[in-house]
């Protein structure tokens, strides 16, 4: 066990963990932040997607030792009132079904829009590789476009 100081959603958090413990489980089981979901443990499905230094990152395969000193942003830190343009667009399109993959889906979409404010369909295809078993993909695509418009007019 080692002590780590993590910067999560702008706050400094102290945790004690094995250096190999994935960030996802530090968030969920050490810090009680359960918005980021566990889906595969292998970085395959994206349900655990968070931002590390602004990049969409699969927290289930990122050791806590590698997160030290970097800016971590989770779904809990996306907005104070759930009104980030991407969240608004998700509600407008009624994207979620079971909802389980959507924290990761939203974090991936936010990261995409932060580096590419007006993504094309092809850009969305390339960036949005999260798995959704409910089949919300077409609505995700529409919502990403809608969020881009919302951000442009904000």
């Amino acid at each position: 066990m080692q002590k780590y100081t993590l910067k999560i959603n702008g706050e400094s958090r102290e945790v004690e963990a094995d250096p190999r413990m994935p960030l996802l489980w530090v968030l969920r089981d050490r810090l009680g932040m359960t918005g980021s979901k566990f889906g595969c443990g292998q970085g395959l499905c994206g349900a655990c997607t968070v931002h590390v230094d602004g990049r969409a990152t699969r927290a289930c395969v990122l050791p806590v030792s590698a997160a030290q000193g970097r800016d971590v942003r989770t779904i809990e830190g996306l907005s104070a009132d759930g009104d980030h343009p991407v969240q608004q667009a998700w509600i407008a399109a009624q994207v979620p079904q079971c909802g389980y993959c959507q924290s990761g889906m939203i974090m991936a979409a936010v990261a995409l829009l932060e580096r590419n404010p007006a993504p094309s369909d092809a850009d969305i295809d390339e960036a949005m590789t999260n798995i959704c078993r409910c089949g919300t993909y077409d609505r995700v695509r529409q919502a990403v476009h809608d969020a881009a418009r919302r951000q442009a007019s904000a």
Binding site: T34, G82, I91, P96, Q102, S103
Partner: peptide, 11 residues
């Protein structure tokens, strides 16, 4: 509008 979607998009 679904009652549960706002909670879902906030995680």
């Amino acid at each position: 509008p679904r009652q549960d979607v706002p909670a879902m998009v906030r995680g």
